[in-house]
Write a protein that binds this DNA or RNA. Structure first.
Length: 205
DNA sequence: CAGCTGATGGGCT
DNA sequence: GCCCATCAGCTGG
């Protein structure tokens, strides 16, 4: 087996034109943070695509442009972080070129590095649960509002391809979580999970 | 295991 | 003033 080298994701990855495909390709990629010299990393196993102006579940639906959503209109490759329910910080990857406000919510990850650090941040021990759910993933990695708009090619905050690819046959598409307000768009199968992975959020299959 | 619910604060009509 | 791209801790089977 050839061991692939770690490669930071480049602009071309984020600029691909099909956001649903990017959301699936993000499965298997590694998100690394090194805040306050604390190195943590997870392999992404669950994502959700939000297709901007035509998607009622998206913050940018109908070209909504506010101080908060302005980050979604920037060029792909930066982080869109916002507070949900007053408690949870949710991390998204902005994709597409400037003025196309698509984003992909990172919903769950498999812990790879800095597990002890993540256990302290989360105040729990079970490794499978450390980054299961978008609020939990952000907390485990130390991501918060201050990282909103930061490039994901930063020295302390980046995405890596280590050669791990999940074939289509091991990816399951389901409706997105918690978007009932979006009417018929709530039913779109824009959530992608790695089949059978223990770190995916929600009830066990 | 499923189902319910309080916590908690920025964003927006 | 209401609305959330959630979670943990509780209840009862």
């Amino acid at each position: 087996m050839m061991q692939s080298k770690w490669m930071t994701l480049k602009d071309e990855f984020f600029f691909q034109t099909n956001t649903l495909e990017i959301a699936q390709q993000l499965l298997g990629k590694i998100l690394v943070t090194r805040f306050n010299n604390q190195l943590t990393a997870v392999r992404i196993v669950e994502t959700e695509a939000y297709l901007g102006t035509i998607d009622k579940a998206s913050h940018a639906w109908n070209n909504r442009y506010t101080a908060r959503t302005s980050v979604m209109y920037k060029r792909g490759g930066i982080a869109y972080v916002y507070l949900c329910y007053g408690i949870h910080h949710l991390t998204n990857v902005v994709v597409q070129k400037e003025n196309v406000p698509h984003a992909i919510l990172l919903r769950a990850g498999e812990p790879l590095m800095g597990i002890d650090i993540m256990q302290k941040r989360r105040k729990i021990k079970k490794v499978n649960q450390l980054a299961a759910g978008p609020g939990n993933l952000s907390k485990a990695l130390g991501i918060h509002l201050g990282h909103n708009g930061q490039p994901l090619q930063s020295k302390n905050f980046y995405l890596v391809d280590d050669g791990c690819v999940y074939p289509n046959s091991s990816i399951l598409a389901t409706p997105r979580i918690g978007v009932d307000y979006a009417g018929e768009d709530a039913l779109l199968p824009y959530r992608f999970i790695v089949k059978g992975n223990e770190c995916v959020s929600g009830p066990k299959i």
